[in-house]
Design a binder for these strands. Structure first.
Length: 265
DNA sequence: ACATTGACCTGAGAGC
DNA sequence: TGCTCTCAGGTCAATG
């Protein structure tokens, strides 16, 4: 799940549920999802404090502690948050749990353990170290800035969209979605796109990411011309033209596309 | 520079 | 039913 729309949805979930309450206890069931600290250090870092506000850059989520410091949350491929009171509701694979003073728990759930939590003492330094580019939905990333970022790059367009150091937040699923709406074949070299192509791509990037976020990343709530709900459907047809969708490897990832709407150059 | 592959992890789903 | 195989929405390092 966790591309920009997913992480933005998690951010709103955390805003609605996990802020402004004192963390009484931190339980780490698997230390592999704790980075840059031992489980004891993380517990020490959080206990007695509150999370006060959130910040998201690309696929990375940060929660500010009261006083100094932040908590970083990265969701890997299978991570999400669960806030609950009844222990019977505790999800499987909740590798880290924050127990709040109000009796609720916030679990960091990650079946494959490719995500992590980490204490962050200096947010600016952390962002620099992660080498994250501008957030894909940052208002400053207008069409002109988008063209500027593409300048000089010779990668395939899908690789570029997924390059977190260039633009942060787009992964395999939403790069496919964006390229589908823009009518661009995923393996097209970036230099083959003209300004009109890049402007169109930029427009659909914003549009697709906002639309997916608005639908809270529920495939059933997305517009009828979205590919996301068709990802795991065998023999799916293009929602626009009915051509059977095809798959191709790009950037080492399986990419779904419509051979008619996204012709190979 | 760029593309590809394997590793990190582990479960879900397909095929036998 | 149970076993084996392949694949999965993210990154990173190593290799061509």
């Amino acid at each position: 799940m966790p591309e920009l729309p997913d992480v933005e949805t998690f951010r709103r979930y955390l805003d609605a549920n996990g802020l402004h309450q004192t963390i009484e206890e931190v339980a780490v069931a698997d230390e592999r999802v704790v980075k840059r600290a031992s489980p004891a250090e993380l517990a020490d870092y959080l206990q007695g404090h509150r999370l006060e506000r959130t910040y998201r850059r690309g696929k990375h989520l940060f929660a500010a502690l009261d006083g100094e410091g932040w908590l970083e949350l990265h969701f890997g491929m299978t991570g999400y948050l669960a806030y609950y009171r009844d222990p019977g509701e505790a999800p499987d694979y909740g590798h880290v749990r924050l127990a709040y003073a109000n009796g609720y728990q916030l679990a960091f759930v990650d079946r494959r353990k490719l995500g992590y939590l980490a204490p962050v003492r200096d947010l600016a330094a952390c962002l620099a170290e992660l080498e994250l580019g501008i957030d894909a939905l940052d208002p400053e990333l207008d069409a002109a800035a988008f063209r500027e970022l593409a300048k000089g790059r010779r990668v395939q367009v899908k690789c570029w969209l997924m390059d977190q150091a260039s633009i942060a937040g787009i992964g395999n699923v939403y790069s496919d979605e964006i390229l589908f709406h823009a009518g661009i074949y995923p393996r097209t070299p970036l230099p083959d796109l003209d300004w009109a192509d890049l402007d169109r791509l930029h427009g659909y990037m914003s549009n697709v990411l906002k639309t997916a976020t608005d639908s809270q990343v529920q495939p059933g709530a997305m517009p009828g011309d979205f590919l996301v709900p068709l990802r795991k459907v065998d023999d799916a047809a293009c929602p626009r033209c009915g051509t059977p969708l095809a798959k191709v490897k790009a950037c080492g990832r399986t990419s779904q596309y419509c051979p008619t709407c996204q012709p190979t150059p």
